[in-house]
Every structure is written in structure tokens, then in C-alpha cells.
Design a binder for these strands. Structure first.
Lengths: 172, 172
DNA sequence: TTAGAAAGTCAACAAGGCTGCCGTATCGAG
DNA sequence: CTCGATACGGCAGCCTTGTTGACTTTCTAA
């Protein structure tokens, strides 16, 4: 195990970052930071009849236009019925366009309309602004560590999804 | 500003970590990691009649025994009424002890009972286990960066609370 | 002593998870 | 062509956890 070698290298130095107290600090940091992380989009959405669930749907549809309901389901990790409610309102309100699949007519391919794209940009720009400020303050090294720990925290399945998303963006 | 100096130092090197694409990666990492972060305690709580809110209450009561409802409210960032429902079930089920304040009889001082402490330990140990694994894999430097970015992401008020919690643990 | 502020409780509503069940359209294999 | 599997949608109903509004108890300052 490469892991063991790394641990060995730390022995005698500082394994203090693995104490229960340090772990608790990390847990609390996650809690507080996540609340901040969702606060800005939530504030925008509060005025409309939408919630965080709508934001998530918009995000991933925007990121991978034409994806099917099932794919979106897998990414979001919720049930079909739960997503459906959200998706229905987005379609009714003309933010999302649901087209019958070209290869497989059972599938629905999801796209954002102009209105949907506009809202998505507004939401994600608010979120990016906060993230950008945090990144700038912390610097590139810290950001690398931030991402490393978050990735290590995901379970393998989710991490695979996350990596797949990465590949998508490399294609552009 | 110290911030400006740091930015200056980066110019010409790599400001690429501030691109919209990198920020989006960070946003998605937060989303996926937070889901994993809450998954283990959620699974334990699903069997009982409790939810994530109960976990949070137990955590902070355990961390600062004797704190009042209002203090807990401030930390959790929810309304009094919302917390009350959660708190009531915990008290009814004998996990939390609510004593009338000594100085001010309007206040309720919250403590965990033996049963409450046991559940808190079970939940937080599950969460710590995941965090520990992630920390070990990522290493101390990454962990430092992780914490830096999370702190920078909080709004100032929350960060102050978070720092105050830190001081509490230093006292022990 | 009395008015107002503060701490906490009860009631009712909404968002968004969940399960279960059913219906329809489509696909692909035999 | 038929039949089972798959993709999607809808309805009913549940739970947790957030919200606002109205209330009691208690304290404090005028």
C-alpha cells in the first residue's frame, strides 16, 4: 500500500492532524462552510417558487446538455419521483426543455431554455463569486489540498461520477 | 492588504486555479463530498425516528454542555421553532436533559444524558471514521489547505462562531 | 409596579426527501 | 410478432425540517 508508506513518512513528525479533536474541527468546518456555500443561491431562489433542488437540476443540465432523466437521477442521487416534481415545474415554467430521445425514443433529453440558462448563470455566478473569493484568500496550494480531501471523502462510486464529469469538461 | 501581496506573488505563475472551470470543479466537489459526509450518520439515524437535525443538536450540546437554547440556535442557524421540535423529541426520549437556568429562570440549560452521549458517540464516530480516512489519504498539507478554504468560504459572522468553538476546545 | 424585552412553547404550513403502485411508450430478444 | 425489460410520468401518502404567527413565563429597567 502506498498509503502505508505515506503514513510511515509521517511517523515521528506530526500525526496530530489525525486526532479526534482535529477531525471534529474538520467536521464543523464542513458544516459551517456548506451552509455558506448554499446561502447565496438559496437567497435568490427564495423569492421565486424554487428551492435548492431546482438549482441542482439546472446546474447539471447546463453542464451536460441533452442528458437523460436517468443520468440526472444518478448524478443527483435522489429518487425518480422526487426529481420529477422539481423537473415538472421547471418544464412547465419554461426553464427546461424535455425532448424525446433521438436514438431511444423512451428517453427524454433535457436542455435549458434561454430563460433557464439565464437563471442558472445567475445562481452559479453567485456561488462562484463566493468560491472565487475563498480560493483567492487561501491560495493555489490550499485549493489543491481542499480538492484532495473532498475527493478522498467521497465514496468510490460518487468519485467515479465526479471524475467522469471532469473528463466531460476536458472535451470542450 | 496582505491579500494583494499574495495575489501579486501568483501573477505570472498560475492564476489558472481561479478560472470558472476550476471554480465549478470546486462547487461540484463540495456537493458530492457533503453528501458523503452526511451519509454515514444519516444511515444510522434512518432506523430511529431521528434525522440530521437531531444529530446536529446532539453534536453541539455534547460539545458545550449546559448551553442554552438560544446559543444553540445561533450556532445551528435555524429558527427557534424549528429547533424546538427536534429538541422536544430528544428530551421526551431521554437523550437530552433540559434544566431551568440557574441565573435566569427563562433559560434552559441543555445536557446529554448517558443515552444521549452514547448515540452522539456512535454518530460522530461514524463521521470521524470517514474524515479520518480522507485525512490520511490526503496528508497533513492537504488537510491544512482544506481547512483554509472552508474557513475562507464562511461569512465573517459564522467564522467568528467557528473560531469561538475552537477556543472552547483549547480550554479542555 | 408596570411595560417591554427576551426565552421558550405550541400550531399550522411548505419544501423536498422517501416508498408503493400503476400506466404508457418503446426497445430488443426470441 | 410477442413478451419481458426499460424509461418515464403520475398519484397518494408519509417523514423530516425548514418557515411564520401567536402565546406564556420570566426578567429588567423606568
Amino acid at each position: 500500500m502506498q498509503d502505508k508508506a505515506r503514513i510511515q513518512a509521517m511517523v515521528g513528525e506530526d500525526l496530530l492532524f489525525l486526532t479526534d479533536d482535529q477531525l471534529r474541527r474538520g467536521i464543523e468546518a464542513m458544516f459551517f462552510a456548506y451552509r455558506a456555500f448554499t446561502a447565496d443561491p438559496d437567497a435568490i431562489l427564495a423569492d421565486m417558487d424554487y428551492g435548492r433542488a431546482h438549482h441542482r437540476a439546472l446546474h447539471f443540465i447546463n453542464r451536460d446538455p441533452g442528458l437523460t432523466v436517468t443520468s440526472l437521477l444518478a448524478v443527483l442521487g435522489v429518487t425518480k419521483q422526487s426529481l420529477n416534481r422539481v423537473l415538472r415545474t421547471l418544464i412547465e415554467d419554461g426553464l427546461v426543455d424535455s425532448r424525446i430521445g433521438r436514438r431511444d425514443r423512451r428517453e427524454r433529453q433535457l436542455h435549458l431554455t434561454a430563460t433557464g440558462t439565464a437563471l442558472e448563470r445567475r445562481l452559479s455566478e453567485a456561488q462562484r463569486a463566493r468560491m472565487r473569493a475563498a480560493y483567492r484568500r487561501a491560495g493555489p496550494q490550499a485549493v489543491a489540498g481542499f480538492r484532495q480531501v473532498l475527493e478522498a471523502m467521497m465514496d468510490p462510486e460518487t468519485r467515479a461520477q465526479y471524475q467522469a464529469l471532469k473528463d466531460l469538461s476536458d472535451d470542450r
